[in-house]
Design a protein around this nucleic acid. Structure first.
Lengths: 270, 270
DNA sequence: CGTAGGTTTGAATTGGGTCAATACAGGTGG
DNA sequence: CCACCTGTATTGACCCAATTCAAACCTACG
């Protein structure tokens, strides 16, 4: 009853598995989803060079290990080059609320920008790798390249919009709608990074989904089973297949709200 | 059943009551809560001058009128110099979800930073006045004065933290805890702007509070009555007096979560 | 003074929570 | 290789907090 999310999360003190400085050539970050991150298109060659140089290190994170924890000072933002993480608030007596999931190609660490310290924990749900760039370098570069600054603000703003969408979800939707929304959101984000939009794996537990959606794990399980019975999805453990995206969307549209779709549009590819 | 928040909100097309350009001297914005907004302290005289010059216009907004509506392009951010506004999402077939309340001295309009268009509506709950500054000017100034840029990022980050706090509230708290949290949050913000922390007026309806907290108006009313019965508050219509802040805090601490207090700490004075 | 919107309060209903039992998958060690 | 064990998932039965429906009461304002 004590631990909500269970799972031995490695040694909390050993947040970083290995830090590997990059050679100049490596800083191009080949095969890294960082390249997919939507940088401003109209950069000069020299400016692009600067952007690549932002990445100071790569870092693998074993399943269950922290990328960072609440309270740590903001040093770097990270782009996930592979893997799947979750961010959560709380956790100081066994309680915690999941506030987001981050997949390959997405940016994490922005929770610290307000006060300069992280307010949430970020843990790898599976073996992952991230590319780190110093926050200070990012703002410096923004000052030199207005397009970069603008882009960075857009990313922050998109995160704001995402949170508002979740507030909407938590405020007005019932259990089934929340779960449907969750699946559609994941689907859009997987698609945005080149994976299948209709078949994917849920790397997190039902309890984590529930925490994120403001539901209990049993309710999540029931909602998934119900969607399965209605032929909208196929669910088998952590493997999902969306059978009818239109039906799922319709379900949200009804009670959800007119702009529920905006939650889906918002930062699918952040 | 159609309109959730009711109230005739003026003519939607007539969002702006009057736009009054500022004379140089007026741009100092005397008596304006804008001055209270937490600018970086270590600015030179010239830099301060630039900050004041950011404000391009003042603008009164009659009760029920819009400051801006969803879909409008981002032009300016506004500091509320007096009054009380609410922001809400949705509203396109009569539905809407309140996402925040803004009081004197706070900054509004950041919802548009992501995509360059406002995603929410902002309406005056009482006759208000705002000071506007162009978003472009703000970012330009940030480029010239690093401390300004840093400050602006902090403000954005604080907004992110605020939203996460609300996600927590909507995800894990029961009705009484939500209402208690709401009152404590308002109290902290009123205090931060020089008003009484223990006695204030709620300028919004029960329905709007409910929408914000993910509850029905009757539930809000009952929760307030219950807090009244428990001698934690005095409530009489829209007038509240907090009788025991410690008790209110304790109530949140129990089931809420260890870092629930962080929601109270977060951007009380934003 | 009358009306409309807002608030409070009561009674009935229900969606999701809680408790509990069972099933299942993956890893460990004999 | 199999038995075991632990964490996870599913499903059922019951319960409760919040919603829904409804009525009465305020209070602000034309």
């Amino acid at each position: 009853m004590a631990h909500a999310t269970g799972k031995k999360q490695g040694d909390p003190m050993r947040a970083v598995d290995t830090i590997r400085p990059l050679s100049p050539i490596q800083s191009e970050c080949p095969n890294c989803a960082f390249l997919e991150w939507g940088w401003p298109a109209n950069l000069t060659a020299g400016e692009s060079r600067n952007v690549y140089d932002l990445v100071t290190h790569q870092q693998p994170i074993a399943q269950g290990n922290f990328l960072y924890q609440a309270g740590l000072p903001l040093a770097s933002l990270h782009v996930i080059s592979s893997g799947f993480l979750k961010t959560s608030l709380g956790d100081q007596e066994g309680r915690n609320q999941v506030t987001g999931f981050c997949m390959t190609g997405e940016l994490v660490g922005m929770d610290a920008i307000g006060i300069g310290k992280h307010i949430s924990d970020t843990v790898a749900l599976e073996a992952s790798r991230v590319c780190g760039m110093r926050y200070a370098d990012l703002t410096d570069l923004g000052r030199r390249i207005p397009a970069m600054q603008h882009h960075f603000h857009r990313v922050l703003g998109a995160e704001l919009a995402r949170d508002q969408g979740i507030m909407l979800l938590l405020g007005v939707m019932n259990a089934q709608e929340r779960v449907a929304m969750f699946l559609l959101n994941l689907s859009a984000r997987f698609a945005a990074h080149g994976y299948s939009a209709s078949r994917f794996r849920l790397p997190m537990t039902r309890a984590e989904i529930g925490s994120y959606l403001g539901l209990k794990l049993e309710t999540v399980s029931r909602a998934l089973s119900h969607l399965h019975d209605q032929k909208m999805i196929l669910i088998n453990g952590k493997d999902v297949e969306l059978k009818s995206v239109p039906d799922l969307r319709r379900m949200i549209g009804q009670h959800g709200s007119p702009n529920a779709h905006s939650l889906l549009a918002v930062t699918p590819a952040l």
